[in-house]
Design a protein around this nucleic acid. Structure first.
Length: 875
RNA sequence: GGGCGAUUAGCGCAGCUGGUUUAGAGCAUCUGCCUUACAAGCAGAGGGUCGGGGGUUCGAAUCCCUCAUCGCCCACCA
């Protein structure tokens, strides 16, 4: 073996093995006769950089994939990136702006060229970063939501859904940014509390001079677009208004009174002005009561011709001006201070203007039905299951999906408008022309007459196809790959995109494949800092993942994240987690140093070593079974903790210490061979969690052929467990700890051999182990404790170590007394239970029997304590 | 405002359909050790009555009600 340093240095090891895995194409998968196991990566933003959320998410995926691979499955993890329409376009716009170029100065083609340049420059950085983490993705399959296959899939799906009647054009209130001149998605609107005013305005009742009602509004300028006033039908104060009309102040328009329970009677005056063009709820009322809708704003937020007055003036200037005019006309009842939430644009900070516009929608009702059922029936299992509730709630209240975005970066909507104002939907321009001619019966139409819809599709409209389109299942639904890998096995993602992404993938899966897209969805938590704040750039509380990998090693960081991350729970990140991971790596490293430093000789196996080998075999099998069970339930951090304890406590602190030969002497072959085998098994078990160090040590452990790797070695399977042996061993450990405690208290060095007195019997067969680990020169059965001995108890048996000096009887008594109290209290509880007739009558027999055993055990212990106390007092 | 979930050692968690010794590990803490793999270490120890109150039950951290606190999702009052 080459010399191993005293500390594990990850940097060199990591790059070396990642290159080796790549060189031998160990991540690559192709359909074959084995059982498939597949995960598709949640595609990160193509120009993004790795953050802690990605680290967590991808570590989990890698653990699952590596484990499956070692279980002999044909494991595939498909990587890729997302074009992230809104955020990428915003970045490109910002970059151009910094160069003094406005998006409006460019043609679509010019802008897209800049966007592609940007994508090529920064695209894929994040995937390179994932490699540093050890991600075992099949990079040969790297996809992009805007590459050829994925783009054509998106367009095909749009056309299919349109032809099925599931896509339609509709008018909807969008969040309009008057500064950026674009619609924003709801996610881009930031609501801020603002100090504003509630204006109480008088609306005169038509035909009843002098009679008026008062309407409260925060936006007096929108009265220009008022087309009704609404009151609650249950509001007796206004029942007299039924069927009447009122005059919009200043404007002079006569509008109807409508009655709808939407209006809260106790807010403001109970009268609501209705402006269907400029308020989402008013829009709904307008639809319901067939009200006209007057759009009073230009795209830039100034008053349009339709406003009739203040034309061309900015909306906020109008608010001031109109209030002056209203006051002058004595139409203002009062003005109150009022705090309300105002939507601002995430990009420009401009106040959002709700604006009606025509958008494309997907009908969701039919799509949602099978998707809800699939999760309800656990065809798709959610981990943790609490997300089922959330999902159900959303799916049963689902709204149609607005899929058009006023962007250039993305998949342009495949709809072409004809000169007559109608439109056709087709996969290509040529098809569109054919359809247009068919539709209009006008053979003279040419491509130049068709104008494609300038808008793009929502990013999620491409990512909802991801598990299908990655295998080209949309364009070639019968191809070998989609048949083999679909449905994929697990999906790992954050719960905040359960609706945006997970739900829609499920819908797409059932709609286009007739089957669920994956079997399990593991929802990770959100990574927070240690005081619970979400990690964010602005707070500067997010560590740079690559820096962490530099400091702690990829394996250390992976372990640190996994230890703290039960499914669905947020994780409070702290560097100390990675430190623990790094320390564990070091522990493993040094354990190998120890083992490799041993010489062997042809000699007999010591009994203590034989026991240790037997015992650890059982321990290992028990843990293997436990890990299998936990991983099956996606309880990854618990599984890792089990492995951690197995390696650190059981293997290093107990097993290795027991079999360790005396200084300078060699080890017998049998034990050495067993130890290497155990080490090998442990490394395999650890590999999916900590791929790099295990690969490195696996090489040091035994020679290998070029191309071999622990990552394709077989995962150990649990074997038989000798429970009796395990129990005896645990008792032995307690006895050893008892002796060690005495050493600590009495300042006796480990080197000094001691004598152990036993009042009773040792756990069967454990003597050699106890002798070695406690460094005993003699173990003697005694009837009664030696006065100069210091005692401890394991179970009902008292052990003692004779010392040269007198032991303070007071101290001994005190300890015994404390023990006595504990067991007495316990016994009282048990006895009370057993004395309760209803307990004995109603509780299952096994439970009663157990209580009886507790009673007997505790009584025996108390007797032993009493005897010890008596002996002490009699001295 | 509606819904969901949480509240267990200093910290972040486990404790599954109520009953295996008056609650379990990890980290941190404390004590003693540089013992020839590892001080990124070794050995040992202490620490909670399970958010408050009420109820069901022979028996509750575990089930029900209620209050409190926190978190998440949805809707949002003009």
């Amino acid at each position: 073996m080459s010399e191993l340093a005293t500390k594990y240095d990850p940097s060199e090891v990591e790059s070396k093995w990642y290159a080796y895995w790549m060189e031998h194409r160990l991540f690559h998968s192709e359909p074959d006769g084995r059982e498939p196991f597949c995960i598709v990566i949640p595609p990160p933003n193509v120009t993004g950089v790795l953050h802690m959320g990605h680290m967590l998410n991808n570590t989990i995926q890698d653990i699952l994939v590596r484990r499956a691979r070692m279980q002999g499955k044909n494991a595939l993890w498909v990587p890729g990136t997302d074009h992230a329409a809104i955020s990428t376009e915003a970045k490109v716009v910002a970059k151009l702006a910094s160069e003094g170029v406005a998006k409006t100065d460019l043609t679509r083609e010019e802008f897209l060229k800049h966007a592609w340049d940007w994508t090529h420059r920064y695209g894929g950085i994040i995937l390179e970063q994932l490699k540093k983490l050890g991600a075992s993705c099949d990079w040969e399959r790297t996809a992009f939501t805007m590459d050829d296959v994925r783009s054509r899939s998106v367009i095909r799906v749009f056309v299919k859904l349109f032809e099925k009647g599931l896509i339609y054009r509709g008018v909807r209130m969008v969040n309009w940014d008057p500064k950026a001149l674009t619609a924003l998605s709801d996610e881009e609107v930031i609501y801020k509390e603002e100090q504003s005013h509630l204006f109480y305005l008088r609306y005169m009742v038509e035909g009843e001079p002098g009679r008026y009602i008062v309407v409260a509004t925060t936006r007096p300028e929108t009265i220009l677009g008022d087309t009704a006033v609404c009151v609650n039908p249950n509001d007796e104060r206004y029942s007299w208004l039924k069927g009447k009309r009122v005059i919009v102040p200043l404007v002079g328009r006569s509008v109807p009174i409508i009655m709808d329970e939407y209006v809260e009677m106790d807010f403001g005056t109970g009268c609501l002005k209705v402006t269907p063009a400029h308020d989402v709820n008013d829009y709904m009322l307008g639809e319901k009561y067939n009200l006209p809708s007057i759009d009073i704003f230009n795209p830039d937020g100034t008053i349009a011709e339709a406003g009739g007055m203040f034309v061309g003036m900015d909306r906020f200037d109008v608010r001031r001006k109109i209030m002056e005019d209203l006051k002058a006309a004595d139409l203002v009842e009062k003005v109150e201070d009022y705090v309300n939430k105002v939507g601002h644009s995430e990009r420009t900070d401009a106040v959002i203007e709700p604006k009606l516009s025509t958008q494309w929608f997907v009908k969701m009702e039919d799509l949602a039905k099978p998707a809800l059922e699939g999760v309800e029936k656990d065809d798709i299992k959610y981990v943790p299951s609490k997300f089922k509730n959330l999902y159900r709630h959303w799916m049963t209240n689902i709204k149609d999906w607005c899929i058009s975005r006023q962007l250039w970066w993305g998949h342009q909507i495949p709809a072409w408008y004809l000169p007559d104002g109608s439109y056709v939907v087709a996969e290509t321009e040529e098809d569109a022309l054919v359809k247009a001619i068919e539709k209009t019966n006008d053979a003279s139409l040419t491509l130049a007459d068709l104008k494609q819809d300038p808008d793009c599709l929502d990013t999620w409209f491409s990512s909802w196809l991801w598990p299908i389109s990655l295998f080209n299942g949309i364009l070639e639904p019968d191809n070998e790959e989609i048949r083999y890998y679909y449905p994929t096995t697990d999906l790992v993602t954050a719960p905040d995109i359960i609706f945006f992404w997970v739900a829609r993938m499920i819908m797409a899966g059932y709609e286009f494949m007739g089957k669920e897209p994956f079997h399990n969805v593991y929802f990770t938590g959100i990574v927070r800092d240690k005081i619970g704040r979400k990690m964010s750039k602005s707070l500067g509380n997010s560590p740079d993942p690559l820096d962490l990998i530099d400091r702690f090693g990829a394996d250390g960081v992976r372990m640190g994240l996994m230890l703290a991350a039960p499914a669905g729970n947020d994780i409070m990140y702290d560097d100390s987690l990675c430190e623990q991971g790094r320390n564990f790596c070091n522990k493993i490293w040094n354990a190998l140093r120890l083992v490799k430093g041993w010489d062997t000789a042809d000699k007999e196996q010591p009994e203590s070593a034989r026991l240790a080998v037997d015992w650890f075999g059982s321990m290992l099998n028990r843990t293997l079974a436990e890990v299998d069970d936990l991983m099956g339930k996606f309880r990854i951090s618990e599984a890792l903790m089990a492995v951690y304890k197995l390696f650190w406590d059981e293997f290093s602190s107990w097993y290795l210490e027991i079999v360790k030969p005396a200084y300078g002497s060699p080890m017998d072959q049998t034990t050495y061979k067993a130890t290497l085998d155990y080490f090998d098994t442990l490394l395999r078990l650890l590999h999916s969690f900590m791929p790099f160090i295990t690969e490195e040590l696996w090489q040091h452990l035994s020679a290998r052929e070029e191309g071999e790797s622990i990552m394709i070695a077989e995962l150990p399977k649990p074997g038989s467990v000798d429970e009796t042996l395990l129990a005896r061993f645990e008792e032995a450990k307690e006895i050893i700890a008892g002796v060690r405690t005495i050493r600590l208290k009495k300042q006796i060095a480990n080197k000094t051999p001691l004598t152990l007195n036993v009042e009773g019997s040792l756990p069967e067969g454990m003597l050699p182990v106890i002798e070695k680990m406690a460094n005993l020169q003699e173990v003697e059965k005694v009837a009664e404790k030696n006065p100069t001995a210091m005692a401890f108890r394991v179970g009902a048996t008292q052990y003692s170590v004779p010392l040269s000096e007198q032991v303070d009887p007071e101290e001994e008594l005190c300890k015994l007394e404390a023990d006595r109290k504990h067991y007495e209290g316990f016994l009282v509880g048990v006895k009370k239970k057993l004395a309760n007739e209803r307990f004995v009558a109603n509780a299952p027999e096994a439970v009663v029997a157990l209580e009886r055993k507790k009673e007997a055990d505790a009584t025996a212990k108390l007797e032993a304590i009493d005897a010890a106390m008596k002996a002490l007092q009699n001295r």
